[in-house]
Design a protein around this nucleic acid. Structure first.
Lengths: 235, 235
DNA sequence: CGTGCCTTTGAAAGAGCTCAATCCTGGTGG
DNA sequence: CCACCAGGATTGAGCTCTTTCAAAGGCACG
């Protein structure tokens, strides 16, 4: 679903839909918009790497991006999956502190760092808007810290499935979630191994909490139970 | 050291030292300062609890504050230890999303949420300054996610010790770090149990990487080795 | 209809957890 | 002044959950 949500259009992109601008007036919006350029990535392609000079700031337009950090021996921790409206590169100073790669095909709005800094000065309310967005991200990161530090494998998986479900909450009727990322991505996001992810999902299926029509589509059969598990309310 | 760093003074506190104001001009600084009131907490006292209405924003003046989240069954994850200059309560909307408690005796500058919002509108550059501070916190949170998700117990302890050391980096000569928090705090910060923290420290001591004159003072005997361990460069 | 990648499943090993006992240490009261 | 006590820290032993290592299954693509 998500992967196919891209509308290829040769026309000028609709900048009024920039999340960056939500809450700003028309003049401010157009100011921001003129700074943006559009960029496209194929699934798996890298946007920027940890340690590279941080010369750009991006807003995801369509698709899913993964951010991750590596340890010297190759252990990977995925910091987050970013969907439409999320910003990348804000938290960086001189150099990017993590790597960004496309999970699905991705389109982004790009701002040069210099242009972005100018916008911050010139567009009233923009800094405050970004502060709010960054605060939200910080809160999400703290939830993830609770998950990584204190939840069991099953609880992690349950939390993840519910988070994915709330992303495309729109479609009623179906209780099915489309999961664009691989098991290995999920594992590295939850601090588990691929095998444990697979086993936990199998267990949930066996307990009839979820269904697994295909590896990438998961039916949330018993959402109430899933929420209990995610909250850590039960054994 | 940290615990004793409090200067009791009946005089008006020195607001020009507010971290909140660093980089702002004099007029802006005094605007911010007039909004602040001073508050004091004994070690162990709670500043605010998860779920309570978020009516205040604080800046730590002296001492150490711990932020944590709980699971229903009591499992605790400490989100961070905040020292002088750090802000609390920014990332919250209607209600606090975690609990704040004093680890040592603590003094704070307090702002009402309403007053703070006014400041954001009136003081140029403040939102931008806060954006930068929040970005820093976000980056720290992401480092902690790597630690929680992918590092071994020893690596976690090594990372923690170095982080503590960099807090009071000033005092040269000594390679000793004062650790104001209990083993249980450390455990809940690193996603371990008290026993594992204790055992890991014992192991590091046995390997002559650190010294343990008292439980709360730790000598970084072999800092190079500690840095290797923290980075995950060795077995 | 192979081939390769991703996912699933199985069996064994191990890192960290749980439970339990002991050891300090600093504060208290006789 | 010193023994006593309580809470935190350490140590020990066994166990569990997750990982590791290994192999098989499934699906897409050439």
């Amino acid at each position: 679903m998500l992967a196919q949500a891209i509308q290829t259009s040769a026309t000028r992109p609709d900048f009024t839909s920039l999340t960056l601008c939500r809450g700003l007036d028309r003049r401010a919006t157009s100011q921001v918009a003129t700074q943006a350029s559009l960029q496209r990535l194929q699934a798996g392609q890298q946007l920027f790497g940890e340690g590279e000079p941080a010369d750009g700031i991006y807003e995801v337009a369509t698709g899913i991006v993964r951010l991750y950090k590596l340890l010297p021996d190759g252990r990977r921790q995925i910091i987050g999956f970013l969907s439409a409206g999320h910003l990348l590169g804000l938290a960086h100073r001189e150099n990017y502190v993590h790597t960004a790669e496309a999970v699905t095909m991705v389109t982004l709005h790009r701002y040069s760092r210099a242009g972005f800094d100018r916008l911050l000065d010139e567009v009233p309310g923009l800094a405050r808007r970004l502060l709010s967005a960054t605060s939200d991200e910080l809160r999400a990161a703290q939830d993830q810290m609770l998950l990584l530090g204190r939840k069991s494998a099953t609880e992690k998986i349950a939390s993840f499935l519910l988070a994915m479900a709330s992303l495309h909450s729109a479609r009623a009727g179906t209780d099915e979630v489309y999961i664009p990322m691989s098991r290995s991505d999920i594992a590295d996001y939850l601090g588990l191994t691929v095998e444990t992810v697979s086993r936990s999902l199998a267990k949930l299926k066996q307990d009839e909490v979820i269904g697994l029509p295909t590896p990438n589509r998961i039916a949330l059969t018993d959402r109430a139970r899933l929420e209990e598990l995610a909250a850590g309310e039960c054994v």
